[in-house]
Amino acid sequence: MTAALVLIAVFTLATAAVALSLRNLIHSALLLIASWFGIAAFYLWAGAEFVAFAQVLVYVGAVSMVVLFAVLLTRRSRADTVIAPDSVARAISAVITGIAVFGVLGAAILNTSFARLSPAGVPPLPSGTGVSPVISAPTATVRDIGMQLMSTHAAALLIIGILLTVALLGAVVLAAQDGPESKQESP
């Protein structure tokens, strides 16, 4: 159980790290798709099947295509997907910042006792026994999710629909060609 989590985590982190350090944008995008697959595998591992399939549909299916289109539309020549190297000083300071943030977050996580967060029916075991308390996994079937979306969260669903409509129309307006004058400017 935990070994599977470690495998998924190592796969996801390795693909994400390599993707963000490559200079070829197409390779970066494809490796990030693999990373999103790893995140979907984590959702499956945690028992959130619907979210896993939503992740695959939205990220692996839709966002990846938008990213690849953006990469291909913003290159100047056929071979222009390899970008120039970035400044080393910025990379070093970014890595130092990231490691510092991870140190703070990791120390906070490791020093927190999560035992009192366990469900009321399960007595928290003393730490260090090596046995994790058995927690009954919450189940959220697609039926439950649908019922909640249509009852408790109906307002949120409507708002998210309006948000998506407005955002996608705005994206089309932003990316569309303006008129004849901008066509004259572009070679």
């Binding site: 159980m1 935990t2 989590l5 470690v6 985590a9 996801t12 982190l13 994400a16 790290a17 963000l20 944008l25 995008a29 995140i39 984590f42 945690a46 990213v67 953006a70 990469v71 913003t74 970008i83 970035d86 400044s87 910025r90 990379a91 300071s93 970014a94 890595v95 910042t97 990231g98 490691i99 943030v101 991870f102 977050l105 990791g106 996580i109 490791l110 927190t112 999560f114 967060l117 994790s132």
Partner: peptide, 27 residues
């Protein structure tokens, strides 16, 4: 498992942070 999941997600967050800070390509 819970601290492991949280460590995983914080590592992913920091990778994203490093990528957003270090690269100069907007995509």
């Amino acid at each position: 498992p819970l601290p492991l999941c949280l460590l995983f997600s914080s590592a992913l967050f920091c990778l994203g942070l490093i990528g957003a800070l270090a690269r100069s390509n907007t995509i």
